[in-house]
């Protein structure tokens, strides 16, 4: 997946000189995870900008650049640090087009998520702060193909897009990518696995956990349909409701913590749009309502796993 993201940046910079990168240690060093390795050599100091440790200034400068028509891609070294520029994103960036008609064609991207023992400040899934912010778009891919195609769409979009890259998947997800330019549209979920008995909705690393659980369930005769959200804002209502109308049951799985996670929003929209079709409660498997802990046994208890997803799916299938 990491290489797919690098390719997307490379190809977009090649295609359009309005695309510039800025962030901490992404030039000479190539980024903490080497996502931007080689880009400085190719595109030069003006297009790959190593900044001071100043998240507010990184996002602020990207806004200013976008007002002059550039398409900056700002990197958070770890997405946890996006908290440092929360004001800039939620008040300056998100409201710009609505308030005074000034579009902000920028991307803020960075490694997110747990499972690598990064501890409370290098493992976060802060997507819901921003899903609750009208004016932003929030993307969180689970495959290398999608990561490349969605990042290209995000760079070409006229709106600010937050692009979450699950670091657990960086080097674990490996796919052959088609040669040549392609994009994946923002705001469209995808059905990863067809099934008739229940719908499992997920995204990012938990999409893979959900797919594994679906395999386990299939051996027991339960056919789960698995939906990968890909974009959390705007949310693809149609794909979700169509699946619920078919399976009549829905389980939401996310690595984000439980209270205020996107499962609650999905439960509400299913109740609003498909209540008559439901044969059971909307269930969720999520991380616990705690900070992300450091020690392996703690983090393993914190994160959802295949067993927990399969158990919840069995409960739901019994309705």
């Amino acid at each position: 997946m990491l290489e797919a993201i690098r390719q997307a940046l490379f190809e977009e910079m090649e295609r359009d000189p309005a695309v510039v990168l800025l962030g901490e240690d992404l030039g000479v060093y190539g980024g903490a995870f080497k996502v931007t390795a080689g880009l400085l050599e190719r595109f030069g100091w003006e297009r790959v900008i190593d900044t001071p440790i100043s998240e507010t200034a990184i996002v602020g400068a990207a806004v200013g650049m976008s007002y002059l028509g550039l398409r900056p891609v700002a990197e958070m070294q770890f997405i946890d640090f996006i908290a440092c520029c929360f004001n800039q994103l939620t008040n300056f960036v998100a409201k710009s087009h609505y308030r005074w008609g000034a579009p902000v064609p920028m991307v803020v991207r960075g490694p997110s998520g747990g499972g690598v023992h990064g501890g409370p400040f290098h493992s976060a899934n802060p997507e819901m702060y921003f899903v609750h912010t009208p004016g932003l778009k929030v993307v969180y891919p689970s495959t290398a193909y999608d990561a490349k195609g969605l990042l290209k769409s995000a760079i070409r979009d006229n709106n600010p897009v937050l692009f979450f890259e699950h670091k657990f998947l960086y080097r674990r997800v490996k796919e052959e990518l088609p040669s040549g330019d392609y994009t994946v549209p923002l705001g469209k979920a995808v059905v990863r696995r067809e099934g008739r008995d229940l719908t499992i909705v997920s995204y990012a690393a938990m999409m893979h956990t959900s797919m594994e659980a679906a395999e386990v369930l299939a051996k027991e005769g339960i056919e789960a349909e698995v939906i990968d959200l890909r974009t959390l804002l705007p949310l693809d209502r149609e794909t979700l409701l169509a699946s619920v109308k078919k399976t009549n049951k829905i389980l939401v799985v996310h690595e984000d913590t439980r209270t205020g996670g996107i499962a609650g929003e999905i439960a509400a929209l299913v109740c609003e749009g498909a209540f008559e079709d439901l044969d059971g409660p909307v269930l969720r498997v999520t991380s616990l309502d705690t900070p992300v802990p450091y020690s392996p046994p703690l983090e393993e208890r914190f994160l959802p796993d295949v067993q927990r997803v399969a158990a919840a799916a069995r409960d739901l299938a019994r309705y």
Binding site: E46, I49, S54, I58, A61, G64, Y67, L68, G69, N91
Partner: peptide, 27 residues
């Protein structure tokens, strides 16, 4: 002209970005 927001200070990095982009574009 860039619209301000009520939170103080945030305009300064934004206007820095304007200046950086202006230089980048040769303006």
């Amino acid at each position: 002209v860039v619209s301000p927001i009520s939170m103080l200070g945030d305009l300064i990095p934004v206007m820095t970005g304007i200046a950086m982009a202006g230089s980048y574009l040769g303006q």
